[in-house]
Structure formats: C-alpha cells, structure tokens
Design a protein around this nucleic acid. Structure first.
Lengths: 151, 151
DNA sequence: TATTGTTATACTCTATAACTATA
DNA sequence: TATAGTTATAGAGTATAACAATA
C-alpha cells in the first residue's frame, strides 16, 4: 500500500519525493526537533543525550570512540563531556592501559537522568513513528543500520 | 540477515543501536556530508539544491510551499532564493492570483545546472546505499516517506 | 484577522587547523 | 610517526520575533 504523502500537498509531485537523501533529511529534522523538545525537560539535547547514553551503558567508551560512533569531531565531544561533567552526570576516568585516553562513565545521577530522559525520548519516538507498525519499524531500523554503519 | 554493524566497533553494544532517531541522525549525517561534497562542484549545497529541484520541476511553488515541504523557516527560503537568483538560476514571479506570494521558477541555466548536479547527487547516493539492493532501497524510501510526511 | 514575504538576531551545529602529551 | 584530547575560530544551519503588504 503506497503512502499518499498527505503532508506534502501539491509538491509531492516533485522528484525530491524519490530522493532518499531528502527523505532522510526531512525525517531526521522531524525526529531531531521532537527529540529535543522531549529532552529539554531534562536539560539535555540530542547530542548530549547520545553521549550520556554511551556513558551510561557500561561500555566505558573513550572520547575518541564516542566521536567515531556519533560521527562528531573529537573537539565537539570535549565540549559535550565538559557540559555533562559540569552537571555531575558523567566523569572522565584515565584509561589504565593508555594514558592519553579518557574513559567516559556516567555517575549515579547520570544513569538516573538517562533512565528518565530515555523514557520520554522513546515516547516522542512512538509519536513520530505512530504510522508504522512494529514490523515496519524494525525493518526501518534494520535498513538504517546498514546505511548508518557501512562496512 | 542481520547487519553486524561493522563500522560501529565496540560500541555496537550500546542501546543507541536500537534507537531509530539515532540511526536516522547518523545516516542523515553521512548522506548530508556526501551530498554536499558532490554538490560543491556545482556551487550548491543540500538546501540550495533542494530549492532548485523544486523550482526546476515545473510545479511553480510559492516560497511558503517550499518552506513547508523542505521544513525550513520562510526566512531561510528568502536567503536561499536570493542566492540562487543572484546566480541566475531561479526567478521570482508574482503569483497572479495572490499578490502576496512569489512563485519560484528555474531559469534555463538553473534547469541545466540542476540536471548536472542531480546526476552527481544520485551517484553519491548510489555510493552511500551500495549495501542495499534495489528492493531494500525502495523499501527504505517508502518507510521514510511515511515518517517524513505524517498525515 | 490571518497569511506571504522580509529583516534582524541569537543560538546550535559543523568543519578545520593547530597544539600537548602520550603511544 | 601516529593517536587522544584540547583549544580556537569560522561557517553553516536553526529558531524566534517583528514588520509591511495583501488576503
């Protein structure tokens, strides 16, 4: 069943409608805006939330790993971790096997805030993807993983 | 066949991997960057290319329609159209039935540049989606249309 | 009253280069 | 020689408010 592009109006006839890059950009813009609204109540934004998620996951990532995974410049990670640390949500720990590297770990307060924020973020995502059934949502995630993490 | 997140390394264990918003953001960042590289040779960027695409499609969109479709603020469209017009790629025409509105149409030069640029943009997209077969690509586009244009 | 285009402004995000300390 | 983190800076993108002309 093809989608009728209800929200697109007269311009749904444009060739952009077939452009995956454009669809990706528009879907991301909606998702990003809705996510930021949901996260604002917790003093977070999309980027700081992502860093907190990695720090709270028990993986003990280095700043470099965070930069690569989130596709941020390492200097941006510095600023984001600075901000989270200032709010007592994460700590920098020296990597015992590489004294150049910092491992970023969430504090107890950070883990708690992440739990609260992620619940709201998931609610916002539900809202955004309400038109997709669970199978479609899983399929979208799978296809996006392939595009987002090319071998 | 599940994807192994080859590019994600150790952090593929993170819960972000299941977060469609995050995957959308990362896929879009890659797509956006690759697109801008491809478009730079033509003096365009993702946003100005999208405006040119709408102007070159024969739809005669108003600036307001462009803003809604591309999810830009109307004031951003002013700047983008200004720039394209300065380069002789589009013209503003008064809408005969609504004197408030400007209709944006591509010039001959604009249509020609769009043809060249879109070929390169499609090549870049091929590169990005090389891991997807045609059926998967069509499926991704269909799912993204539903998310990008909610009813 | 509401909408289209416009100007102005501030903020966030992104990109690049250079430096330091370690490896 | 290369890599992790850091600082600094400039540019691109986003968000908001206000205004004139027109509906």
């Amino acid at each position: 069943m093809p989608h009728d592009l209800a929200g697109a109006g007269r311009l749904s006839a444009s060739s952009l409608t077939a452009d995956v890059s454009f669809l990706l950009a528009r879907a991301n813009a909606l998702s990003f805006a809705a996510g930021n609204v949901a996260l604002a109540a917790h003093g977070l934004r999309a980027r700081s939330y992502s860093v907190l998620a990695l720090a709270a996951g028990g993986i003990r990532p280095s700043q470099r790993e965070i930069a690569d995974f989130l596709r941020l410049d390492p200097s941006q990670v510095v600023a984001l971790v600075d901000d989270l640390q200032r709010h007592g949500l994460v700590e920098r720990e020296p990597d015992p096997v590489d004294r150049r590297a910092n491992v970023v770990v969430a504090t107890a307060a950070g883990r708690e805030l992440y739990a609260e924020a992620s619940a709201d973020a998931l609610d916002a995502e539900e809202e955004l993807h309400g038109a997709l059934d669970p199978a479609q949502r899983a399929q979208l995630a799978e296809l996006l993983r392939i595009v987002a993490f090319p071998s």
